[in-house]
């Protein structure tokens, strides 16, 4: 198989809303992603960036094309296993009621795996939340909550991480903090990411490649230098 050097491959991916609307949300999106590559997805609001991410972990169903994980059509995989392999962090944290620790062990628990308290503490310390394990998840600040959401996704040890404007709902100070946290996590864990952002500076700083979407179609794809010139 020639495609196995890619972790993720997207071929002619598209989605049309079912009847009666028949609206085309995304069309003919193709790209490949290698280990430790970061692909930034940019484009105006409503361009289909979130739609693309939601197709990549199959929260929505593609109506055109498909996604290949290690060369295998993702529709042949059990969807729960697929979603464990492709983690996601959204614009808001959407933490579950309960403690920070309960949020973090949620993913592994779905596969029947338990995390011991030490593992949780270590993960939290890594994201700058030392001693937060027993805190009430719903009383955290925006930046803290987003760090927990990132930790919660990483606890599943995903092969690909999808980030849907993970810093855009935060104030300026926590935005910089979360961005540099993600940058260092990506470097040290060699994470493979699809990172939706509306900040061209963020795309330039984080990405190996950039995909520009407009009105549901690929406008351009290339290196940050090619796409974000001047």
């Amino acid at each position: 198989m020639n495609s196995t050097r890619y972790i993720l491959e997207c071929r002619n991916l598209g989605r049309e809303l079912p009847s009666p609307q028949h609206r085309l949300l995304l069309r003919n999106v193709s790209f490949t992603l290698q280990q430790a590559e970061v692909l930034a997805v940019i484009g105006p609001s409503g361009a289909g960036k979130s739609t693309l991410l939601r197709l990549l972990n199959r929260l929505n169903e593609p109506t055109q094309g498909s996604v290949y994980l290690h060369g295998r059509d993702y529709r042949e995989m059990p969807v729960l296993q697929l979603r464990r392999c492709i983690g996601m962090v959204m614009q808001r944290a959407y933490l579950f009621p309960g403690t920070v620790s309960e949020n973090i062990v949620f993913g592994p628990a779905q596969q029947g795996k338990t995390m011991n308290p030490q593992q949780v503490d270590d993960l939290l310390a890594r994201v700058g939340l030392e001693g937060y394990a027993s805190r009430d998840a719903l009383t955290l600040s925006g930046g803290e909550a987003q760090r927990v959401a990132i930790t919660r996704a990483l606890a599943n040890e995903p092969e690909v991480l999808l980030l849907d404007e993970p810093t855009s709902a935060l104030d300026e100070v926590s935005r910089d903090g979360v961005q540099s946290l993600l940058a260092s996590l990506i470097r040290e864990r060699r994470l493979t990411c699809v990172w939706v952002t509306h900040s061209l500076d963020q795309a330039r700083a984080m990405a190996n490649r950039v995909l520009a979407l407009r009105a549901g179609e690929v406008e351009a794809i290339g290196t940050p230098g090619e796409i974000l010139h001047a």
Binding site: L59, G87, M88, M90, F96, F106, G107, Q111, A149
Partner: peptide, 20 residues
């Protein structure tokens, strides 16, 4: 919706995601 889809994205079944 956000919490439910977050749970699904972490590999939870639909039943688990809407349990509460």
């Amino acid at each position: 919706i956000g919490e439910i889809e977050s749970a699904l994205a972490l590999g939870a079944t639909a039943d688990t995601a809407v349990g509460r």
